[in-house]
Design a protein around this nucleic acid. Structure first.
Lengths: 212, 212, 212, 212
DNA sequence: CATGAATGAGCTTTCATTCAT
DNA sequence: CATGAATGAAAGCTCATTCAT
């Protein structure tokens, strides 16, 4: 899976690119400053990455691999389905918070930029998220869905975790909030689907509220 | 702020800027194409907005005002606290999905870009989100928190809604998922805090894996 | 026909571009040196020409107009068809030798570059050359073609003049050759079609000579 | 697949360079795409050619040799001077049309680029063209020039053939023209000098119109 | 004989912005 | 209120070429 790593420079470029990404974001990423920082010319970058897009895509790939590894580590040796799912959720949050630069390009890039990511690699990357689905099905079994759709439910787990990660790494969450407490609550809430689906107390969606 | 006179040109610039935003994202927004589209020169834009940042900030302000209006409309005439909260959640989702361009600059901009948004206006904008907090406190009363922090809980409502909105407008959610069903589930899940806080079945956070 | 000429800078850019063209050829033409020479920045050139191609195309247009003018002047007041044709031929040669930079981009550009010249403007430009055809038909009348094709014959006039012009301005013609004598002979030879078409003495094309 | 021997690589480079030349012209010729196509590195090209210029010059040399061969073949066994000259003319046209990539670098390069072609090799190459001169002298003998200069006349043969070849390979000649007919006519016209020099019907050059 | 790594100069073009009018 | 002219900086990228191995 991992490349023969043609040189340390390639590594240095990727690392510097990540560093810039978390600091300045995608649009603040430009070739010459990276080159200057790693001590080569802008031309040299093109020896390892055929374009700026390719460099970004390589980072996305790396990020997806790392997330996959953290997922595997998280569930390794854990048998109980609910615990496996909880571990996955926690691992997702941890990954995002510990690797904001990877997370940003993996899950927060604008659609227009994402379109240039090769579709087959995109599909492969998406398989990471299917773990949420598979573990949920394993946890709840064929019954117990009460008419709900497993794909929708697992997507919901993901979106709810993503909301927390993305706002945290964008420094949008009030600093007075206890970070660890929020994370813990996010994990638990994400997994509430596993418990009682009874929430009749809340009113059904109202189309009038949708109008502006 | 700016004069209340606000000519039609100013309006046209803002509208065109929004149109570009939803298509190309923040980084695809540049002054001259806007000018060309609304039929004036790039210089003219500077008569109404002192910089590109100021233009973006004006759009953020507008978006925040619109969200505020939709919040007010949503809870208008509704007395029951839980229903008020549900309405707010639904209004938030609807706003994001119907105004992706506003939503993007309001809640998805990179920190570096957000830093240039004047802090006082940022604080004012944040007050929108405090509605979640206030309504939750109203709903649960002084008791019933079981040791949980109202601020954390209301933040959790927000992040969970944001996850769904942001991934939907970024076209990250699998197209085979029923959009409306996901939204409905997102609202309900966001408000689960109001019900039983019992989730002892899920293991405690693994603090060792979270630290780097 | 001539533009309102928005400023003298536009003129200066065109002139400098021409100067560079004759010296360094098309591939030696680049924006920044032009800018430096006319005393503006490279960006300014883009105020007057939307691209390097557009700049070249503007020069082609100008050249075609000038050639057209010289053609008109040449035949002005001349009635006798043969003399009109001779004047055209001479004017063509003179134009090319006096305006080598125009001539180069008008008639010596590589096909690949020419493809980007808008087809409608190309067709308009080609009309210049149709004057050879029209005058030949006028000179020889409906009869007198002895089975030869007027279009072929007029094309032959052009190609034969072009050969002389292009080799002269490329400095390919031996310097010991009397330039004026060559030109005079070229004109006369180009118009030989008008006289006796009898050249049976020369053998027909031989396919064996075509093989390598 | 065995490795190409060194001479084969040299050959492959030259062939690929020619292929690129006919497609993209001189300015579209760059080292790395050639290397990629022949399956070596850009550096390897420098083992066989000390510079891009040298590569081009080698191609020019090759082309000149091939033209020389075709000239020899054309007149081989032909005794009658006029027929020999006609054969040469035809061979020249055929060479250009069948080897447009050679022809372009041999006869259509901008003076600035040609200056770098070593003068001695240039002179040797020029000897090809002197065959026109020698055969004309042989055909007409010491008399029969009527005051005309043999060098001028043979140059005229060349320029007139060049005009036809260069415009044809640049796709400048109207597609509705019968290519073979034009070529045949070009050969005949080029050799008209051999016949009557009487062209008194055409007016003398107008030196006044030629000056600016 | 051939390579991989690297370079410096250069390319066309776009950017947000300013200033005199 | 609006413009046309102009700019400096920077963008991504390609070029022919060199050098140690």
């Amino acid at each position: 899976m991992s490349r023969p790593s043609s040189s340390e420079l390639r590594r240095a470029i990727l690392d510097e690119a990540r560093r810039v990404l978390v600091e300045n974001g995608y649009m603040g990423l430009s070739m010459r400053p990276i080159a200057r920082e790693v001590g080569c010319t802008a031309t040299s970058i093109y020896l390892y990455f055929e374009s700026k897009d390719a460099l970004i895509h390589a980072l996305i790939d790396e990020g997806m691999e790392r997330l996959q590894e953290q997922f595997q580590t998280a569930v390794d040796g854990v048998d109980e389905p609910r615990r496996r799912l909880a571990r996955l959720a926690r691992a997702y949050l941890d990954f995002g918070l510990e690797n904001p630069e990877y997370y940003e390009i993996m899950f927060m890039l604008h659609p227009q930029l994402m379109e240039r990511y090769p579709p087959d690699r995109y599909r492969r990357a998406r398989r990471n998220l299917e773990m949420f689905h598979d573990e949920m099905v394993a946890a709840l079994g064929p019954a117990g869905w009460d008419g709900r759709d497993p794909k929708t439910e697992s997507t919901l787990v993901w979106t709810s975790l993503h909301g927390t990660v993305s706002l945290l790494i964008a420094h949008r969450v009030d600093v007075s909030i206890d970070r660890e407490a929020l994370i813990e609550r996010a994990v638990r809430q994400a997994l509430r689907s596993l418990d009682d689906p009874d929430n009749a107390a809340i009113e059904p969606p109202q189309s009038d509220a949708a109008r502006n």
